[in-house]
Each structure stands twice: as C-alpha cells, then as structure tokens.
Design a binder for these strands. Structure first.
Lengths: 135, 135
DNA sequence: CTGTATCCTTAGGGATACTG
DNA sequence: CAGTATCCCTAAGGATACAG
C-alpha cells in the first residue's frame, strides 16, 4: 500500500491549496515576488478583495504564508512564504515541467525543466511499475 | 523571467486537473488501479454519477485518460491513463512528499519520499534564490 | 454496468461601498 | 493601504430516477 486510505496525501494537499485562487497566490509570491495585498489585486487575475482577504487568511492559518507589518512603514502589510510554503516549490516545478511538455505555449527555464525531467519523468514507468505491485 | 505571463504553466495545470474531483480520479487510477466507472463510484469519496461522467469525459478530451471497451466483455468500459496522464506522476509524488513532511497522518513509501526530498527539497533555497534574481 | 436527464440546493465568488 | 460587509447571482454538484 502506497498510502493509507483516509490518510491520503492528495486529499491533504487539496485541502491546503486545492482551490483555484490559493495556488495562484502562492505562485505570485514564489515567482513574481509579490508581498502586498495590492500586488495580488494588480496581478491581473481579477480576484476581488473579499476573496483575496479570505484566501490570505486561510493560507496564514495553515502556515503557508506569514503576515507582518513593514517595520519601515507601519501601514504596509507584508506577506511572505513560510518554510512550509517554500516547500511547495517542488510541486510548482513539476507542474511547470509537465506544462512545458504538453502546453505548446508554456516556456520554462531550461535548467529547471531539465532537472525535473531527468530526475522524475525519467523514472516514470519504473516507479509506476513498483506502485502497481504494491496495490 | 521564469515564464511568460499569460502563458502560465500553473494556470494550464489548473485548467486540466485544478478541480476537486479530477485529481482524485487520477489518483485512484494511478495508485489504486481503478479502471472502471464503478471503481470510482465505490472509492468512497461520494462522487455522483453525473459528476463522474462529466469528469471522465473532460479528462478523456484532454487526453489524460483513454476510454475503451474490454475486449473480453463488450459491456465493460475500461479507463486507463495515457502517457500524458502518467506524466502527472511527478506532481503526485511531490504532493506526497510535501504531505508527508507536514501532515502528521500521511505515511508514504520511504524510498519514493526520500528520492524527492533529496532531489528537490534539498535544492529548495538555491532554486528560489535563482528565481528571485530573474524576476 | 455505464452512463443521461432532471431537479434542486448551496457555496463560491463578483461587484461595490465602506472603514480603520 | 488593507481589508470588511453586503448583496446578489450563477455555476457546481448532490440526489434520484431512468435509459441503452
């Protein structure tokens, strides 16, 4: 058994970042350096203030991001990825690599994509075979 | 620039497997060996027939899964992952590894988790630093 | 067994105005 | 600037019956 039913890691992941907006917010922090409420509003995805507020709260509650005031400007709030949030990077990168392989429009940094491709895509069938045996 | 705006790989991924049910269906095919309509209904997630039907159609349209009749039983339909679907494995595994790190209940095969951890978590900060420079 | 077809309900989210 | 508070609306999805 790869994992215990009712203790499914995919379900766990979906609970944390499994909605449309959360993953885009994390993406913007990770790859665009966004740190402020306004940054996310201006990202062009069309998120409304109430939804953004809600998602930032949830992500903070789950310790994916931290919220603090800018010491040099007390009215400015700064959002940052926590270690738990930064550790979502491998998930993002594997999505990148998959998209680069199947979305003709996606262009990702070659080094990153190459790394993932050899490390994980390369062993795909071997790993799937291992999994099949343990079902 | 890591990727072109409006050509975002995360958006592309969300469009394919970004809803609650699709990822669970793919999981069941990948890690539980499910191949039949009834398998998914019985998976215990409580999906209804109309939604399941819809998701299977979409996944087939996106060539994540294939649909064919069982040659030995003409009334039995068999769903299988295509290569494009199998290539979602790295994404699944990185979610596994992340969940194992942060969800106390999740227990994943050690070898798989270890492989991902050293390959990708290990270089996390280094990669993030590279990204920051190119924003 | 593998789906459609309907009905119905609710949660999610857009628009907007407003506040500390 | 960073949110809250409403209002409203629609699309997603659960339940169920039925069909090929």
């Amino acid at each position: 058994m790869i994992y215990e039913p009712n203790q499914c890691p995919i379900r766990f992941g979906l609970g944390v970042f499994g909605d449309h907006w959360s993953l885009l917010i994390i993406r913007d922090m990770m790859f665009r350096g966004h740190t402020r409420f306004q940054d996310f509003l201006d990202a062009g995805e069309g998120i409304s203030t109430n939804v953004l507020s809600d998602r930032l709260s949830r992500l903070e509650a789950q310790q994916i991001i931290s919220r603090q005031k800018d010491p040099s400007n007390g009215r400015q709030v700064i959002y940052e990825l926590t270690d738990k949030g930064k550790d979502l990077l491998p998930i993002m990168l594997t999505i990148f690599a998959w998209a680069e392989k199947y979305d003709p429009k996606t262009r990702v940094s070659k080094e990153l994509a190459e790394r993932i491709r050899t490390d994980l895509f390369g062993a795909r069938d071997e790993i799937l075979a291992t999994i099949k045996q343990s079902i």
